[in-house]
Design a protein around this nucleic acid. Structure first.
Lengths: 315, 315
DNA sequence: GTATTTGTGACAATAGTTGTCACTATTATA
DNA sequence: TATAATAGTGACAACTATTGTCACAAATAC
């Protein structure tokens, strides 16, 4: 093995291990410890962030940073990566505890000049727009950590009825249309609930000793199954215009209920929890002429009641 | 200079240049051509995708792919990059002519084991959700190229009135809520218009000889300036409940108009383009009891008209 | 005090590298 | 067809770099 190859493989090896000794590497690469010491010195000079501890249980470590070894990306791949990361700037809050812009700067800086030129040309010509929100989401990383590690989190949640303290166990977090949501098991309601993260006014790991449930089988990929199961249901049927179809596409709860016709119009059909009628009434009023509810009667009644109330307010 | 360093720098040099000769590199690195030939052979063996052409105007080139040299990312940076790219999977159509998933696989594959483990833990716990759209956007790359290179594009556009052929000069393209839009100068209307890309049924570079305008000063970053400026304004005043305040906080157009009181309620106050009244009427209807419009009268009238229409529909 | 780790310098033996040389092959162009 | 410009190959003497061994130093946990 040539020295160049050995250095390259050594770079990948130290990248992979959290901690290692000179002796260990010497055995693995079948060279002397002196040679490994020299090689590590040379890697340091090449920019690999190594540091060492002398003494028992000592050894070498790579600083927090992980080196991405040389990768060949096509120009299109590099451009896709760049603009995907560039889109993160629209989020004032992210659960990653660093500026995503530092990642982007590094990537851009090291990319070859012609790809950089291409990116510069495109920068003001393409964007993934995410609505800029005034809301604040300061507890995203606590919630995400709670979901990953199955922890109980104490939150103060602001709803219509005011601020309440709750114990929750998060399933995950997701961003939609610039807002962050957290489906979680609520110990107060003893059921899965969807929380809007800007309404979480405080969050910290619970210290009261509440035992977490085993929710490993639940995740964002099967979040439709997160809906409450012991509820009364009614069957829903709503006619939609083409515009109504588009607006329902943007709502995740419609995913299994939305049907389309060739001409672009469509309909919603399926079961709905009776407890959701107030929310749905207001939702379909918001769709205006683009939705016509035909079933269930209770929903139509609620819509009519609200329309009358609104008419009175504007008389 | 040690051989290892020379190889590393040579990797970066060939990465940067589109095309180069052995002689040129030998001069640049102050070694013989024989040594450069050997070095290039060794780079090949290390995986750099080089290919050569013999004869006049020959030389070496790096295949389409560009090598990203070793970069040290923090774990958080790597995770941010990964999930930003992962979010691209929600787009069935992208203007980048490759699968963004191949970029992501490469990135993931070469990242060190512990970061990979972390990503795996997080994969079903965090997501940037983009609505899944049935619409098709097959001409994104043509439009983007048109914007970058200031080209005139012939399109067939489907609007309410049917399909029309137009010549446009794109300013750029952007994705919002899963749909792609293209602000462009329309030669038919002799003004800037916003086109929805799923309604562009055909697009190709114009061959009729229409001269492009110089639109270099226009781009997505100043697209608010793309809107028509000769508009009539009216003054808006809306009382909001606490819930109404929350829901307006989530809207970007309210940024300069929203005022809050100590008790959590608030109001919207400011000027609005008269052309926005239909949109705003439906918006405030969707807020229901949480908003009460007090000014302008034209908006109140539109709201009332829509309420009457809806009541008739549910009678 | 002992054991375990990193660390340093020196040197002989060995391996690898370099530039020069002579020659080959390919290709565009006049 | 000849020429020029490019990549390419093998060989070899001279030179450089690398390696492992050795002796010793320093730091640290137990």
């Amino acid at each position: 093995m040539s020295k160049s190859k050995r250095l390259m493989e050594l770079m990948m090896t130290v990248n992979r291990k959290k901690k290692f000794t000179v002796k260990e590497l010497a055995t693995e690469f079948d060279v002397s410890t002196r040679t490994i010491l020299r090689d590590l010195q040379e890697l340091s000079e090449l920019g690999v962030p190594l540091y060492s501890e002398v003494g028992p249980h000592g050894g070498y470590q790579v600083l927090n940073e992980r080196i991405l070894p040389p990768i060949a990306f096509t120009e299109e791949e590099a451009v896709a990566i760049f603009f995907a990361c560039h889109a993160l700037r629209h989020y004032a809050y992210l659960p990653f505890e660093t500026e995503s812009s530092s990642a982007l700067s590094k990537f851009y800086f090291y990319m070859s000049g012609d790809v950089r030129d291409r990116i510069d040309e495109m920068k003001n010509r393409i964007d993934f727009v995410i609505p800029s929100r005034q809301a604040k989401f300061p507890y995203l990383s606590i919630l995400l950590d709670g979901a990953i590690r199955q922890k109980v989190i104490r939150i103060e949640y602001e709803s219509r009825e005011g601020v309440s303290t709750r114990l929750i166990q998060p399933v995950g977090i997701y961003a939609s249309s610039g807002l962050w949501y957290c489906p979680a098991y609520c110990f107060l309601r003893e059921d899965i609930r969807l929380f809007r993260c800007d309404r979480i006014k405080f969050a910290a790991e619970d210290t009261s000793g509440m035992q977490p449930l085993d929710l490993r089988h639940l995740h964002l990929g099967n979040r439709e199954a997160l809906l409450p199961s012991e509820q009364e249901f009614a069957s829903l049927y709503v006619e939609l215009t083409e515009e109504g179809v588009h607006r329902c596409e943007a709502e995740h709860w419609t995913a299994t209920k939305l049907h389309r016709r060739e001409d672009g119009t469509g309909w919603l059909e399926g079961r709905l929890p009776k407890g959701d009628i107030p929310f749905l009434a207001q939702f379909f009023i918001g769709l205006g002429a683009d939705a016509t509810v035909q079933h269930p009667p209770a929903l139509i009644d609620d819509i009519k009641r609200r329309l009358v109330e609104m008419m009175a307010r504007y008389a």
